[in-house]
Amino acid sequence: MSITVSNISKSYKSVKALENISFNVKEGELFGLIGPDGAGKTTLFRILTTLLIANEGSATVADFDVVIDYKKIRNNVGYMPGKFSLYQDLTIEENLNFFATIFGTTIEENYDLIKEIYVQIEPFKNRRAGKLSGGMKQKLALCCALIHKPKVLFLDEPTTGVDPVSRKEFWDMLKRLQQKGITILVSTPYMDEAALCDRIALIQDGKILQIDTPQAIVKHYPKPIFNVRANNTYQLINSLKAYEHNHSVYPFGEFVHYTDKRADFEREDLIQYLESENLSDIEIEKTLPTIEDTFMELAK
């Protein structure tokens, strides 16, 4: 196992940031922590990267205990925090050199690992980090986290606030790093990125809601889901919420996702009801649940 987490809890004063968290990440796995702001993702990252000590429980990273062997862990992991934390007044090249030196290595020694990412920012290598665009900062931070060839890579919300194109490029990059044998623990608030991980943990309010492969998580969704559409979406949402048999009603792209309390859902009943609410152009079609549907069902 690359990462083991056993019954970890952490509180800040009266706030329980993590409550009895346990999971394992296998070697070479791309494991996602999926949850919104305030779920406890960053606290967990800080515990696993030995920057914070848990109140209860134990954890290992690359077979080292996070408390006893913290120095060894630091040599074996790369950490890209959610907040940009490189030296703003050093250039790209200086930052990278600095981190390589700290870890007793050189840019040349592990160049093959970062090459693909570094060539994209190399034309600007004399520019100060503080003057880079968001996308370039992100690439530099990833290079710095990789320069000592870590066994395990921790990425805390690397794609938050990043547009869909750059997000896709970033995930393509992660997949290629994984193929080089690096274990990756990545957190994200974007549910659509969950599908790109080998396994995921859904996390909210310091608790893990579920751990499994993305495929298995959607498979275990307990109810049939229907795409509903009508001429006025706002009114449709209100009407569905007022419908006595509704179990859940969530806007979902161009449709509203609807689940029914009854075991045998009567489609015609619902159409009649919506028509009586003065809605028209009504469409109801069965659809497949997504990770986000599962998350909302579990978090309800």
């Binding site: 919104p36 779920a39 608030p189 909210q204 979406t233 706002y234 949402i237 806007p251």
Partner: peptide, 24 residues
């Protein structure tokens, strides 16, 4: 300007329902 970044999926939808209401 990016009102829902990082917000949980249920709250994100409640937020959009508020948007629908205002537009309505």
């Amino acid at each position: 300007d990016e009102p829902t970044g990082g917000v949980d999926p249920i709250t994100r939808r409640q937020f959009w329902e508020m948007i629908y209401k205002a537009a309505n």
